[in-house]
């Protein structure tokens, strides 16, 4: 029984990481404002959301199974307060940090309408922290961390997210909407246009 829990805990951890990686990728792609893979934009958004929810479900199983596992020596407090663990407290703590932040993301997402787009986006930006922290937790804590397949998996995840991120930072990322956004942001630093006198336009022509 214990062996089964242990295997399930490890397996769900890896699957959760894979799904979170997909969700982060889809989130970045969604932000580009393009339809991709033959899917319309709203469908892409829905897939992003559902993959994230699925990942969260796998994460829940990952936590519960490892709580039941005597080998990992987890206590409930380790799910909330990081770096208190008995076994590899630092690497376990990273997992705890990721879970805590993820809870904020998961809670604000369906409540977007009530918390407002600003709060939602600010909290959602945390995923850029959650994802690498979760990856490190997997590498540092995982039993399979030394295995070739896991290293390959981690490298593929990292390369995918990093390249999506690089694309995100380039000028051609979002084809539309940037004109308005640029102007609004630039406006705050812009000095007020000079009013001269009522004949200004006549003089300028």
């Amino acid at each position: 029984m214990n062996e089964a829990l242990w295997a399930l805990g490890r397996g769900t951890g890896v699957v959760a990481l894979a799904l979170f990686t997909m969700s982060v990728l889809l989130g970045i792609l969604t932000r580009s404002g393009r339809p991709l893979f033959g899917l319309p934009r709203f469908a892409l958004t829905l897939v992003h959301r559902n993959v994230a929810l699925l990942a969260t479900a796998f994460l829940a199983v990952h936590l519960v199974t490892l709580l039941g596992d005597s080998y990992a020596q987890l206590r409930l407090v380790d799910f909330v307060v990081p770096f208190l663990g008995a076994y590899k407290p630092f690497w376990l703590g990273l997992g705890t940090v990721a879970v805590d932040l993820l809870i904020a993301v998961v809670l604000t997402s369906p409540e977007r309408a009530s918390v407002g787009v600003r709060v939602f986006r600010a909290v959602h930006w945390l995923t850029y922290l959650i994802w690498p922290v979760a990856l490190l937790h997997g590498i540092g804590n995982g039993t399979d961390a030394g295995a070739g397949w896991f290293i390959a998996f981690a490298v593929v995840c990292a390369v995918a997210v990093l390249s999506a991120l690089l694309w995100r930072l380039t000028g051609g990322f979002a084809p539309l909407g940037s004109v308005r956004a640029d102007l609004t942001q630039g406006d705050q630093n812009r000095t007020d246009p000079k009013r001269t006198d009522p004949n200004r336009v006549e003089r300028n022509r």
Binding site: G177, V179, R180, L183, T184, G186, D187, P193
Partner: peptide, 13 residues
């Protein structure tokens, strides 16, 4: 065109 508040896409563009 230069005096728009820069808030609304159809107006700015």
């Amino acid at each position: 065109a230069g005096e728009t508040a820069g808030q609304c896409g159809p107006c700015v563009n």
